[in-house]
Simulated scan of single mutants.
Amino acid sequence: MFYRPQDDHGLPLNPFSAIVTPRPIGWLSTRGRDGTGNLAPYSFFNAVAHTPPQVMFATTGKKHDRDGTKDTLANVRETGVFAVNVVEVAMCQAMNLTSGPWDKDVNEAELAGLELTECSEIDCFRVARAPATLECRLTQIVELPGPSNFVSFGEVVGIHLRDDCITGGRFDITRFQPVARMGYRDFARITETFSMPRPGEQAE
């Protein structure tokens, strides 16, 4: 099968979101200039640089009560900061609940029954029991082709690691089973890992 994205693929659901998988989920917490908080998951998210550490997230679409975008990007535009919370399998239902098309005044974290705490380096909140949180300062927003498509880049200025997720001097993802986005309504949890040293390297 071959199709051009601008044409009809003829399938019941758009296959594009099921091709680039699994995708990490950036559970973004933001706060507007007026103090209103927002918590929402984004699977168009990833790390993009190591030194200094930097991440990106992409927003697509818009809400009726925001000016051509969604709550997360609107808040980031106002304050220049955001926090990325890692999603573990124990929090997947709460994460899914925060993805709803709630009005900007709705507190998603409260709706999902999550405990929050303040960040250390930025004026924002984070999910207290998340396995890890990246505190980020916005570096740039890039508008992409198409309606309401934006990519935001941020430099990581603070990192929280939950103590029980550190074993043998390493951040151990098997201790909490991270959740990844697959296609459509499908998700996956990571329960097994394996190592492969690069050519010329010694195994750790």
Score class of each variant (00 low, 15 high):
Glu118Thr: 02
Cys124Val: 11
Cys165Tyr: 01
His160Met: 08
Ala109Tyr: 08
Ala94Pro: 05
Ala109Met: 03
Arg129Leu: 11
Gln93Cys: 03
Thr139Ala: 09
Met95Ile: 06
Ile159Asn: 13
Asp164Phe: 03
Asp103Asn: 14
Gln93Tyr: 07
Trp102Asn: 10
Asp164Trp: 02
Ser148Arg: 04
Cys92Asn: 11
Pro101Ala: 13
Asp163Thr: 15
Gln140Lys: 13
Leu161Lys: 09
Ala109Thr: 08
Val151Gln: 15
Thr98Ile: 03
Thr117His: 09
Val151Trp: 14
Arg162Ala: 12
Thr98Tyr: 09
Pro147Glu: 12
Glu118Ser: 01
Val89Tyr: 08
Asp103Thr: 06
Phe125Asn: 07
Val87Ser: 10
Leu144Asp: 07
Glu88Gln: 01
Val151Leu: 15
Asp123Ile: 03
Leu116Gln: 07
Asn107Ile: 02
Thr133Glu: 10
Val87Asn: 07
Ala94Tyr: 04
Ala90Met: 00
Leu97Val: 06
Phe150Leu: 12
Ile166Lys: 05
Arg137Gly: 03
Arg129Ser: 13
Gly146Ala: 00
Phe153Asn: 12
Gly113Met: 01
Ala94Cys: 04
Val127Tyr: 06
Gly113Tyr: 00
Thr139Ile: 08
Ala130Glu: 12
Cys124Trp: 02
Ile166Cys: 02
Ala128Leu: 04
Phe150Gln: 13
Arg162Tyr: 08
Pro101Met: 04
Val151Cys: 15
Cys124Leu: 05
Leu114Ser: 06
Cys136Asn: 11
Leu138Val: 15
Leu97His: 06
Leu97Phe: 00
Ala94Asp: 07
Gly158Gln: 13
Leu111Pro: 02
Gln140Val: 12
Leu161Asn: 04
Cys119Asp: 01
Ala90Arg: 05
Ala132Gln: 12
Pro131Leu: 08
Val87Gln: 13
Glu88Ser: 09
Arg162His: 13
Gly100Arg: 09
Arg126Ser: 10
Asp123Glu: 14
Arg129Asp: 15
Asp163Met: 13
Val156Lys: 05
Leu138Asp: 14
Leu114Gln: 06
